[in-house]
């Protein structure tokens, strides 16, 4: 006995080119990050801020990979084992990545604080370059300038795509890019501080960058937790409630045959799923009415992909409420 899974997800065709764009952005991000990790790694020396930035840049690959996995898995339809589809694949990766970011952020912050407390005076030597001696700090600054440029542009390219696709993983990827170039700037200030003989500048910059890593980790953890807990739909930055909630409520309340209704919506990646409990005035042509209402709701927004109506006799607890079936 095989069950034909329901709730297939179909993304409108005009979103396709945006998804392709998002894919390209993340591929470029990963290539940029790898080159930055090499350049920073070569010039790192014993600078605490360079070490911290290197780690931040390396970890910023995590959201990019999460987005790529999300894009790859978005065409996987629900099957026999996973009846609700694979939209949460991204969340799984995100949660793991965020734990790593948060942990590393704490560790690096502790490391920077320790170096400030013991007043470590960072030594940055000279290296041989083109037959002359060059202070490694200048090379660090050059590497840091390079490291700040790609994320600066990529973050700004990703943000509008994240909003149009309503994809929180792309939004976080863009935020991480913003953090990366800010951190690069902080590290430059740290190294310049060393150039002018301030021993604490490097560790202070490192502490600032650690806080950036912590914040990325915290945002990721919060985002994953909220989505796993089926929070109501919000905008990509989770600041405002999604206007789609009101639209659905309004649409259902406007149906003539509905006496009373209650809806609940959740996000599964970029798409919205949910159900409406409705109290019909009578049971005449109920199936047709429900079918029509379903089409109306789905036509409100392309993101509403899986929406179910549950007719009940009353919304009061103890009414014939299909939401919580009792098992005997």
């Amino acid at each position: 006995m095989s069950v034909q899974p329901r709730g297939e997800i179909h993304i409108p065709g005009d979103m396709r080119h945006l998804i392709d764009e998002a894919w390209r952005h993340e591929i470029w991000s990963i290539a940029a990050v790898l080159s930055i990790v090499v350049v920073i790694g070569v010039t790192m020396g014993s600078s605490q801020s360079m070490k911290t930035l290197w780690l931040e840049d390396l970890l910023s690959i995590v959201p990019s990979i999460a987005v790529l996995i999300g894009i790859k898995s978005r065409d996987w339809q629900p099957d026999e084992d996973f009846n609700y589809g694979y939209r949460r694949t991204v969340q799984v990766g995100f949660l793991a990545g965020s734990v790593a970011l948060f942990g590393f952020g704490l560790y690096m912050l502790g490391d920077a604080a320790y170096k400030l407390i013991i007043a470590e005076h960072p030594t940055i030597p000279t290296v041989e370059l083109f037959g002359g001696r060059v202070w490694l700090g200048w090379l660090m600054i050059a590497a840091l300038f390079y490291s700040a440029i790609p994320p600066f542009f990529l973050g700004r390219l990703k943000e509008p795509v994240a909003e149009k696709l309503h994809d929180k993983s792309i939004h976080i990827s863009a935020m991480v890019n913003k953090g990366d170039w800010l951190s690069g700037l902080a590290a430059i200030i740290g190294i310049l501080g060393i150039a002018f003989g301030y021993w604490w500048a490097d560790s202070a910059a490192a502490a600032f960058i650690s806080v950036e890593i912590l914040r990325d980790g915290w945002d990721g953890l919060k985002n994953s937790a909220f989505q796993l807990l089926d929070m109501r739909p919000t905008d990509v930055s989770e600041k405002e409630l999604d206007p789609v909630i009101e639209k659905v409520e309004h649409e259902i309340a406007g149906l003539g045959w509905v006496l009373d209704s209650s809806i609940r919506l959740r996000e599964s990646g970029d798409v919205i799923m949910g159900e409406a409990f409705v109290v019909p005035d009578n049971e005449d042509h109920l199936l047709e009415k429900l079918g029509d209402a379903g089409e109306r709701v789905k036509s409100l927004d392309w993101r509403i992909q899986d929406f179910n109506f549950i007719p009940v006799s009353s919304l009061q607890p103890g009414g014939n409420n299909g939401a919580a079936p009792q098992h005997h």
Binding site: E120, H121, P122, T123, P125, T126, R133, I194, A195, G197
Partner: peptide
């Protein structure tokens, strides 16, 4: 530690 000008001159 951290006497980067001295290191630079000696280097």
């Amino acid at each position: 530690p951290g006497e980067n000008q001295l290191i630079k001159r000696l280097d």
